[in-house]
Design a protein around this nucleic acid. Sequence first.
DNA 1: TCGATACTTAAGTCATCACTTGACCATTCC
DNA 2: GGAATGGTCAAGTGATGACTTAAGTATCGA
Lengths: 111, 111
Amino acid sequence: MPNQQPSLDLMFQALADPARRGMVERLSRGPASVSELARPLDMSLPAVMQHLAMLEAGGIVTSEKVGRVRTCQIQPQALSLAEQWINQRRTQWAQRLDRLGDFLAAEGDDK
Amino acid sequence: MPNQQPSLDLMFQALADPARRGMVERLSRGPASVSELARPLDMSLPAVMQHLAMLEAGGIVTSEKVGRVRTCQIQPQALSLAEQWINQRRTQWAQRLDRLGDFLAAEGDDK
DNA sequence: TCGATACTTAAGTCATCACTTGACCATTCC
DNA sequence: GGAATGGTCAAGTGATGACTTAAGTATCGA
């Protein structure tokens, strides 16, 4: 099974930092400029830029510069990849438990 | 809003590595020993142990040692926390788009 | 045109991650 | 008891992460 194009590595990595998740939460309420994203974040602007770069690398956010302002937006379908992976594990795990349950039930019947 | 006990940081961090996701995939098909987890993973046993430690820190996996064998299992409800966070962003984002759609539709009617 | 605004780049620091090798400790089995 | 099995500990290395400050570079607005 080969990897998808926007790698899960970079995606989960991007979500692993509270500052970045904060940025994503902000952006899920609508687009914002870099300094808007920075405002609540007790850190320098370059630091915020680096976080932004990781969000873009993970395919979670896109940004475009118009004039002197860079506006950031969530990439809607991006998170669904991560969600999908998690879901697959969950259902896989659930199925296993079902089979185990069936097996144990059958054992009980045999007795 | 305070943080939950198994932090999203550690959870996403744990999922950000392909070796660790591989281990989770393996474990979602059933419990396994450390060396079973290591077998497909071209790396030393201590390296695998470190990955395991991060999975445990993220609350995704638990393990117990019996005799000389340590058996690992998925922590079923663990991933749901991450899933939940992603879902919340997605619905939040979708709601915003709905409102935006309504707004644009209303604008169109007014014209 | 000049100053403020909004980033951007570069460089440096300290901590953590992802490994490694080399020893070491318990069980289990013959 | 002694060797094989299964795991653990410790220390070290090189690559990233998560910042910082200092010094730019473009707009924009008066």
